[in-house]
């Protein structure tokens, strides 16, 4: 028995948890971590689909997601450090004072 449907179900649950984390938490670090969880869940869906059809394409797309997550995290964490030096806070509500 091949757990393909359960793989998609787990991916959906993890993605939902990531969305809840982005919406609920006010700390920027937690928002970034929740985005990581969401990217990971999307990669799990791709790998499960690739395993379902026996093709390597799902794993290839996961590699692209991995590269994208690495670039996103490096820029995002640099922005977090910069915002912390500007506002002395990681609260997303504090940064709403920002003027473009």
């Amino acid at each position: 028995m091949f757990p393909i449907r359960e793989g998609f179900l787990l991916s959906g649950v993890l993605f939902t948890l990531g969305v809840i984390g982005v919406l609920v938490r006010r700390n920027l670090l937690f928002v970034l971590m929740s985005i990581e969880v969401m990217l990971n869940a999307a990669g799990l869906a791709f790998v499960a689909a690739g395993a379902r059809w026996g093709q390597p394409d799902g794993q290839v797309v996961f590699l692209f997601i991995l590269a994208m997550a690495a670039a996103e995290v490096s820029v995002g964490l640099a922005l977090v450090l910069e915002l912390y030096h500007q506002y002395k806070s990681l609260d997303t509500d504090a940064i709403s004072r920002m003027r473009g």
Binding site: A67, M68, A70, A71, E72, S74, V75, L77, A78, L79, L81, E82
Partner: peptide, 12 residues
């Protein structure tokens, strides 16, 4: 994309 991320992180 990774090069752009590297340059952006260094600049920030």
């Amino acid at each position: 994309l990774l090069l752009a991320g590297l340059v952006a992180a260094y600049h920030l």
